[in-house]
């Protein structure tokens, strides 16, 4: 089994390619990780960093990440910005509309624990992890594009490592 897992890694180094045998699991998760389409869900200043990451200087496309305006075409929701109590049901609704397997990145302090609105705020949800299950937390206010890219790379690694049985149970 160990050799089968590592075959895709070795086969990339074979010049000219050839016949490769591997497991469905590895190929499936490899392709999933390399085409994470994310839902545009920018609610505050983190969205500016998200846009910057999507633009040519940081170039999200090279990770296979393309923005989608519809939850039905998305694999990933990047919650970029403050989630207010009024916005929380909408976030849940969009998450429910996405096809499985689906992933969530909580970008910035607000989505992790309310951020600067933790104290003295009647309107801000203190963390989105009790609305939707979060895979990756990216701290920062707002996080720089490099942080977001690293968070996405971590998510890709997580996806590549997972088993088929993992996301069936989810």
């Amino acid at each position: 089994m160990g050799l089968i897992k590592k075959l895709p890694v070795y086969s990339e180094k074979i010049p000219g390619g050839g016949l490769v045998t591997t497991s469905v699991e590895t190929v499936l998760h490899f392709s999933q990780a390399c085409s994470l389409w994310y839902l545009l869900f920018g609610t505050a200043c983190c969205a500016i960093e998200l846009m910057c990451t999507g633009a040519s200087r940081y170039d999200f496309d090279r990770l296979g990440m393309i923005f989608r305006a519809s939850p039905r075409q998305s694999d990933l929701i990047i919650a970029a910005g403050t989630i207010t109590k009024k916005m929380a049901p909408r976030l849940r609704k969009l998450y429910d509309q996405m096809a499985e397997p689906r992933y969530v990145i909580a970008m910035g302090g607000c989505t992790i624990k309310g951020g600067p609105f933790y104290y003295d705020s009647y309107a801000v949800e203190k963390g989105i992890d009790h609305i939707v299950p979060v895979d990756i937390y990216i701290p920062g206010c707002p996080p720089r594009p490099e942080s977001l890219l690293e968070g996405c790379i971590h998510l890709q690694e997580k996806i590549k490592k997972q088993k088929l049985s993992d996301w069936q149970e989810k």
Binding site: Y118, Y119, D120, S121, Y122, A123, K126
Partner: peptide
């Protein structure tokens, strides 16, 4: 249904005042 939140004496179960 929690009243007028901008009043200084307003309070709610999940409202955390700045220490």
């Amino acid at each position: 249904d929690q009243g007028n939140p901008m009043r200084k004496d307003w309070d709610a179960p999940d409202f955390i005042r700045m220490p």
